[in-house]
């Protein structure tokens, strides 16, 4: 009755609310944790100590190099047709402006195609992208590629409508990628409201001028660590189920949702198993990744270091789309493995979270999945996730202890049962 015991302890028993309370203490103490920052170093040190205090096994830090981008002071002001402050968040990896800033006329476009069709107008201007929010995966292209696409047509900077499904004049940051051979121009996100304002002004033929100041600096890569702890398997200790979330965040809000919740339910999974005196046949390994926001930097180095052991990697699990009320699990693997995972999900009938969906997702586990290892990701009611994502709104206030209890129960039952089956998942 292991599954029922886990559910009872996580949702109704003495461990209820523990992951929430641990997370609150952590983010209230440390704050946000951008790659290369002192806060991230403190966070890793904090977790290293906390996991040891929790009496987990093989607590260790695995050294990696991560980007170190610093935002600096930044501001934007619409000068014409009237003065208006624009709330902005510079994008990770962006170059800064000259000290005096950049003052230029604006061209507003709603798509890359429109930018191409109006390329003659864009030279020497600031490109404002007012792309509609379709889905995160589709719309985020404007954030990651917007600067280089604008630079190709001679723009001097780009301002991109935040990738947000709801806005209260809140800018959302994120990583952006410069293309090789294309000039690097400053790039930031503006709010949905300001993007739409400038689009309306522009559609009326009104000339818009914006002053942009960004003090962003790219430092040399910094030392960082993936944080690891285990419950060592009793029969096949060399075989591993990974449960994971990422410890780094953006430099706004508290990083409580992205991905504090995912990291802390993953820690909770090991705590629950330990509390119940369970010892699966295989090793359950907690990995708290670093440098995820810059493109899975810590996890890619982990993969390179450990891929020689891929034969023993049973299942890789990642929670990185919030810990709202869970609705099931996403899974990528062979049909035979899916049948087994469907059976495992039935064990969660007492809390009515039994659905298995397709297509596990998660930057940090993608390297393993692409190499054929079965992968699973927590699916929750993420309808509000992109309201807060990469914004000052990503705070503890978004989190809910009851939802986290349920997430922890789902996470733990799946990790434990898969790790304890007599055989590894087919692949």
């Amino acid at each position: 009755d292991a599954a029922k015991s886990i559910i009872d302890l996580a949702v109704y028993g003495s461990a209820q609310n523990r992951s929430y309370e641990r997370l609150a203490l952590f983010v209230d103490t440390i704050g946000n944790r951008v790659s290369g920052s002192d806060n991230l170093k403190k966070a890793i040190k904090y977790m290293y100590s906390a996991l040891q205090d929790d009496k987990l096994q093989n607590v260790s830090l695995e050294s990696v190099k991560v980007p170190h981008w610093e935002r600096g002071k930044e501001s934007a002001m619409m000068l014409q047709p009237r003065q208006k402050n624009l709330a902005i968040l510079g994008l990770g990896g962006s170059v800064g402006t000259p000290p005096e800033g950049i003052s230029a006329e604006v061209i507003v476009v709603s798509s890359f195609a429109e930018l191409q069709s109006r390329e003659q107008e864009a030279k020497g201007k600031i490109v404002v992208y007012n792309q509609p929010y379709v889905s995160y995966g589709e719309t985020v292209q404007y954030r990651s590629r917007g600067a280089s696409e604008a630079a190709k047509v001679g723009a001097v900077a780009s301002l991109i409508r935040s990738v947000a499904s709801l806005s209260i004049n809140s800018p959302h940051t994120g990583w952006q990628d410069y293309q090789n051979g294309v000039p690097k121009i400053p790039t930031a996100c503006i709010t949905v409201e300001d993007a739409e304002l400038m689009a309306r002004l522009s559609s009326r033929g009104v000339k818009i001028v914006v002053q942009l100041n960004m003090g962003a600096v790219q430092h040399p890569d910094a030392d960082s660590f993936n944080t690891v702890a285990e419950i060592v398997g009793s029969k096949y200790p060399e075989q591993v189920v990974i449960v994971s979330g990422h410890l780094d965040s953006w430099d706004v809000g508290q990083g409580a949702m992205d991905d504090g919740g995912g990291a802390f339910i993953s820690w909770e999974a090991l705590s629950l198993i330990r509390d119940l005196g369970l010892r699966p046949k295989r090793t359950i390994r907690l990995v708290l990744w670093t440098g995820e926001e810059e493109g899975g930097v810590g996890s890619s180095q982990y993969y390179e270091r450990h891929k020689k052991d891929i034969r023993n990697m049973d299942l890789v699990m990642e929670s990185d789309i919030g810990t709202f009320m869970p609705v099931g699990m996403q899974f990528s693997g062979k049909p035979e493995a899916r049948v087994i995972m469907s059976e495992v999900m039935k064990l969660l009938a007492p809390i009515n979270i039994t659905k298995l969906y397709d297509n596990a997702e998660g930057t940090d586990i993608s390297f393993w999945m692409q190499a054929g290892v079965p992968g699973a990701s927590l699916l929750d009611d993420a309808s509000r996730y992109f309201w807060f994502h990469h914004s000052e709104g990503d705070t503890m206030t978004v989190q809910n202890p009851i939802w986290m209890n349920h997430c922890a129960a789902v996470w733990t039952v799946v990790a434990y049962v898969v790790a304890d089956l007599e055989e590894m998942l087919p692949r």
Partner: peptide, 23 residues
């Protein structure tokens, strides 16, 4: 029958029974 990389239906049934044992 077992395919080279697959799992036989009999084996799958046995694993399903094993999973059910964790209720």
């Amino acid at each position: 029958t077992d395919s080279q990389h697959g799992v036989s239906s009999r084996k799958l049934e046995r694993i399903k029974e094993e999973v059910a044992g964790y209720k």
